[in-house]
């Protein structure tokens, strides 16, 4: 299990290799990549996003989520990295990798992991657009 928040995400291929080395029982690795969309909610042009986090609590919360998913779905391992600070259009902001024996529990776990990441983990996102800036709330 690895969780990290940073102003620079690690290389995705290196994370893929890292999780592959966790176990020879792995039969599926499902990956989610979150990136900055160029259009805001109201159609305005996005200039950048700005992420801030409650460091320390973010890591503990993510570790709890992964631990829950191991218990619930029997996944083998997961890695989550989330960017903090400014992120420009097209830039990757989240990497989440779930390794499992079969694809079914991997897909289910990854969806749940991302939903919980968006709703439970203390990370806030400000969208800076050509018309102004707004703190984004989950929907």
């Amino acid at each position: 299990m690895k969780v990290k928040i940073s102003d620079k995400l690690d290389d995705l291929n290196s994370l893929l290799n890292e999780i592959k080395e966790t176990s020879t029982d792995i039969g599926a690795i499902i990956i989610f990549v979150g990136s900055v969309r160029g259009l805001g909610r109201d159609g305005e042009r996005v200039l950048r996003l700005e992420y801030e986090a409650y460091e320390g609590v973010v890591e503990k919360t993510l570790e709890k989520i992964i631990s829950d998913l191991k218990d619930k779905y029997g996944i083998i391992d997961a890695i989550v990295e989330h960017k903090i600070g400014p992120a420009h259009v097209g830039e990757d902001t989240v990497y989440a990798l779930v390794a499992s024996r079969h694809r079914e529990e991997g897909f289910k776990s990854l969806i749940e992991l991302i939903e919980r990441l968006k709703h439970e983990v203390p990370i806030w996102k400000r969208e800076v657009t050509e018309k102004g800036s707004y703190w984004i709330k989950s929907t």
């Binding site: 990370i123 996102k125 709330k137």
Partner: peptide, 12 residues
């Protein structure tokens, strides 16, 4: 004491 506003994620 940390005062946390609603956390903000992307749209599903």
């Amino acid at each position: 004491i940390a005062i946390l506003p609603p956390v903000g994620g992307g749209n599903a």
